[in-house]
Design a protein around this nucleic acid. Sequence first.
DNA 1: AATTTTGTCTAACACATGTTAGGCTATGTC
DNA 2: GACATAGCCTAACATGTGTTAGACAAAATT
Lengths: 203, 203
Amino acid sequence: MSESFTINRKEQLLEVAARLFKQRGYAATSMRDLAAELGIEAASLYHHIKSKEEILETICFELASKFSNAIAEVNDIYFNAEEKLRMAIKSHVQIITENTNQSAVFLQEWRNLSEPKLNAFMKLRDAYENGIRVILKDGMNEDVFADVDEKFASLTILSTVNWINEWYNPNGKMNAEEIAQKLCDFILGGLRKKLVTDINYKP
Amino acid sequence: MSESFTINRKEQLLEVAARLFKQRGYAATSMRDLAAELGIEAASLYHHIKSKEEILETICFELASKFSNAIAEVNDIYFNAEEKLRMAIKSHVQIITENTNQSAVFLQEWRNLSEPKLNAFMKLRDAYENGIRVILKDGMNEDVFADVDEKFASLTILSTVNWINEWYNPNGKMNAEEIAQKLCDFILGGLRKKLVTDINYKP
DNA sequence: AATTTTGTCTAACACATGTTAGGCTATGTC
DNA sequence: GACATAGCCTAACATGTGTTAGACAAAATT
């Protein structure tokens, strides 16, 4: 194929599959639906992929590795806990907004994986959550974060950053950067009105 | 039947269905799966229900009305915005923790509804979200809540309270009250360590 | 020019799907 | 005792499911 500007057909297949899986759900999307969307017959799909579940696996694990890389990078580059958290959130939001369909599959359809992939996937998720948890721990040691239950806090943070996938509109007025900014402010500052004497207030 | 202590079979059916829909997803749960779990044949289900989708509808709309009632009650009883928000969150957490299976269906499987029920459902969801939004608006007018984008904030709050369904364990150590308490603190206070000079600090 | 690769097709299989029709039996009601 | 109702059954149907086998044509490679 050498260098070609035509998108690899398999990638196109995965792209369309992610869109359909998001719209209709994995189980409710048939191979014939997918094929029709690509303008081919269902049997032709099997030239590119081994099985329906392989599609789901590919989508889920590709996104999982993006998340893994992102948090590893953040932990490498930054030292300050608040900065780490801000950048982790920013990366997270960026990945979601840049891969809306895949994200929906990653967040909701992974349950349809079967063993042993299911287990492997859950381990990756847990590892990621643990990455966030470590940042929180550091922040508490550094005395920049309030004393909270780390597990509870990490799950709550992840919930807010993941939920954007439910309402985010690529054509809306907020871009990834703005969303991340607002989310960080909310997570760090909370909703209640405060005097400007936060311990870390920077003018 | 007069008064009977045996659970209505239809209710039992709905209960089991909710559990299976949560575990395997609506589309991936067959009527034969459901029947087997009840110890009967698939055809026998149709003595109690009209169709598979009717089961989904019943579960979704029953929970929707619980949420609606809860927020209406909160708006009736309380006047202070912060108190309203706290109580709304508390009710919300209570409904989720008391109906874990139904909640999962309500939050994730509603997409499988078809028109016109789908539209009706989404309107109920929007109305609920709007209820939260009004509380936020009031709070900002009362100057107890920081000046935030209401839509953004309401969605973020809902995300955190809904996400508990992903990890909440009825046999875990935290009960609904404690979870609600922690969530409120997080949402109102945020993660960053603060001096005790919050404008509304109460010793 | 010969050959491999890539991408598609038709046809089909084995099985799962939601649902209907009609019959049987135990229980409760008049 | 007659009758209705509730709750289940077997049998079946029409359609949809993921997937395989094997053929054909265009494009790329040798």
